[in-house]
């Protein structure tokens, strides 16, 4: 690999892409939040893994975004305001990566963030699907964040988003975009796991519009993150990204076909267990004494 600067088995990378692709086809999730940790586990330097994953996400999301745009599922006003934050966040995120790498703690930070995020996603999914399996109705999503929504309604710069049929504060939308953009750079993800629940539950955007608008913003946020990582950190490995994408495309086709034959709730429990297992692996990395106290600062070779 040119940028990873290390020998990497292309088949292994394609296989990982395929695995995550199958999951994204099965579960309808992006899978970026699994791909970066898996790449780290096989020895790709975390910064290269995250940046190349962002590059891969551009490829993986652009056709879907175009399709949603054609179908009218993208709230352009919401998407563009969200993107103001997303572009800013991604740019700041790439700089954060640079600073952290300089002091040798990007690996630490990325693992810590992953432990937190994967615990939240995995735990939420696990509880949710367990309840569904037991036949319990989940809480009304509108009920819980109602106080939060009242607070949101009081924020300044409220504006009308006609396609979504909602009113929301520009400040909140930009802030949310910023957070997701920053995480996109730090973690190498699209951030759908934050954008979608936030849009659906906090803003009240219809699910299909939320999906379309999320994909739309992911394409541009990931393009910006890829570019920013390339110019600030030199961590984008385009060869790695293309191999990942090839693997994940094939995997997604398989996954989508499989999902028609399998039952949803068991699948979701399975996904949550996978997510939690990856989290535990990251956590162990943070808690156990490293084999050698001296490590390469940038995680990879000494270049």
């Amino acid at each position: 690999m040119p940028v990873a600067g290390m020998p990497v088995n292309g088949l292994l990378i394609a296989g990982l892409g395929g695995l995550v692709g199958i999951m994204s086809g099965l579960f309808g999730v992006g899978g970026g939040f699994l791909l970066t940790p898996l790449l780290i586990m096989v020895g790709i330097p975390p910064a290269v893994a995250a940046a190349s994953d962002s590059n891969q996400i551009v490829a993986a999301s652009c056709s879907g975004a175009a399709a949603h745009k054609r179908l009218g599922n993208v709230d352009m006003k919401l998407g563009l305001i969200y993107l103001v934050g997303g572009i800013l966040g991604g740019t700041v995120g790439a700089q954060t990566v640079k600073v952290l790498r300089g002091v040798g703690n990007y690996d630490f930070a990325v693992k810590l963030i992953y432990v937190v995020v994967l615990t939240l996603i995995g735990g939420f999914m696990f509880v949710e699907s367990l309840n569904a399996l037991r036949g319990r109705r989940k809480d009304n999503p509108e009920a819980r964040p109602s106080r939060f929504r009242q607070y949101l309604a009081r924020l300044p710069f409220q504006t009308e988003f006609r396609v979504s049929g909602i009113r929301a504060s520009v400040l909140f939308v930009v802030g949310l975009g910023f957070l997701v953009g920053w995480l996109a750079a730090m973690m190498g993800v699209g951030g759908g796991f934050i954008t979608l629940p936030a849009m659906i539950y906090l803003l009240g955007v219809p699910t299909i519009v939320a999906v379309g608008t999320d994909l739309f913003q992911i394409v541009f946020t990931s393009m910006n993150v890829t570019f920013q990582q390339a110019i600030t950190n030199h961590t984008v490995d385009v060869v790695l990204a293309v191999i990942l994408f090839a693997g994940s495309t094939i995997g997604a086709q398989i996954g989508a076909r499989l999902s028609k034959r399998l039952r949803g709730e068991q699948l979701r429990i399975l996904l949550s267990i996978i997510v939690l297992a990856v989290m535990v692996n990251m956590l162990i990395g943070l808690l156990t004494t490293p084999a050698d106290l001296i490590t390469f600062t940038r995680g990879g070779g000494g270049h």
Binding site: V58, A59, F227, A230, I231
Partner: peptide, 20 residues
């Protein structure tokens, strides 16, 4: 890096659209 970054984005877009 600027040209490389643009290339990486371009390659990804081309790959994504053509494969789909």
């Amino acid at each position: 890096p600027v040209a490389y970054g643009l290339l990486a984005v371009g390659v990804a877009l081309a790959a994504g659209l053509s494969i789909s």
